[in-house]
Design a protein around this nucleic acid. Structure first.
Lengths: 205, 205
DNA sequence: CATTATTTTGAACAACGTTCACGTTTGAGG
DNA sequence: CCTCAAACGTGAACGTTGTTCAAAATAATG
């Protein structure tokens, strides 16, 4: 009796892994229910015993991606807990570069985090929402060092803005469209922008 | 004989308009060939006499959106041709705010510009590519005022970076995801960031 | 071992973009 | 005004999607 649920859990895991592989290799649009069933070795319909629908599957893959991103950011900031404002800018630069590197190395999975939209009328489940906030933790500390007089809500807002700005540069830069910063110059431009903002924020204080 | 091609042209126009309406109302994923045929009053297959495929249709709608965006930016910058560096920052702020306002007011059409991806293996046609660069014209002049010593390629790169940063803030801010700056604070944050960057760039000179 | 509950299955469904054989319309030449 | 080949419009049909569900297979229980 315990065997059934256990095996199910294992199959669900396998399904998520297979989905992750498919997205990493062929992008979100390359994720096909029939391919997954084939790879996992179950019937097409069996997918819906393991997962409510494809949306949930994509969200579960996204959850894993976010966790990996989080650990990459943790690693990039672990040494620099100092609150001096000189290091703060360096930390912000390190975070931004780490984000950019993660996006490059996990291009399709990272894109999926932002490309994916729930089916018409469906709402993002709670467990998926709560994961999205973790990234700001890392930005918050250095920002506080740069702007000690700012209130917590102000810092919150600023960290979101800063993240969004860097995200935009990375996102457009890693797209093929001509609009963007060429990938070769991405790191340099990110550093320049973050440093410029760091300087401006420090002087404003 | 002239009548046929003329009518065809008119029908193509009607098709593009219908597509634009559908996207504006229901988003890119709400664009359905059958609905279009219905609305334009032609057979399903007739669409493919007016347009190669859905991709081309989306690109033609995008072309119109870009033209409207361009004229909005032109209007926002027409007065401020001055090269003083004090006005330059103001101009950059105005451009960014105009971009944000345009995105808000044309949410689905603007999103489509970046959401859309060509079908597997298909390549973006030349006429669609050449339109994408026009936006940087507006950013270039004020940037040159702020950084008179920078080379043209450097300014090019910087303008792309700046655009991408603002774009990121707007894009995430207008999404429903929790990652982003709340829509109510969007304008303020954009102004703050652009002003901070303007200040940093001016002092660097 | 029999019977009931659960799970797995894959054929069937609906919706999608795209194609194509078939009539119909058209317009230049007689 | 008529002819007829060429151009055009048509909607049924195709290949893919994700999703469902009656039935078959399996597991649990008495």
């Amino acid at each position: 009796m315990v065997k059934t649920t256990e095996r199910r859990e294992r199959q669900r895991e396998a399904l998520i892994m297979a989905a992750e592989g498919a997205i990493a290799e062929k992008g979100l649009s390359g994720l096909k229910a029939r391919d997954l069933a084939n790879e996992v070795g179950c019937a097409l319909g069996a997918i819906y015993n393991l997962v409510a629908d494809m949306d949930e599957l994509v969200l579960r893959v996204g959850s894993r991606t976010l966790a990996r991103l989080d650990s990459a950011l943790a690693q990039a900031t672990d040494g620099s807990c100092s609150t001096s404002s000189g290091d703060a800018t360096n930390t912000l630069v390190a975070i931004a570069k780490t984000y950019c590197a993660f996006a490059r190395e996990n291009l399709q999975l990272w894109r999926t985090l932002f490309e994916h939209r729930m089916a018409e009328g469906a709402v993002v489940p709670e467990w998926a929402i709560s994961e999205q906030m973790t990234m700001f933790r890392y930005i918050l500390a250095p920002l506080r060092a740069l702007q000690p007089q700012a209130s917590e809500p102000e810092l919150m807002l600023l960290s979101r803005t800063l993240f969004s700005a860097v995200h935009g540069i990375v996102m457009l830069g890693l797209e093929e469209k001509l609009i963007a910063v060429p990938p070769a110059e991405l790191d340099g431009q990110i550093e320049a922008i973050v440093r410029a903002l760091g300087k401006a924020l420090k002087q404003e204080a």
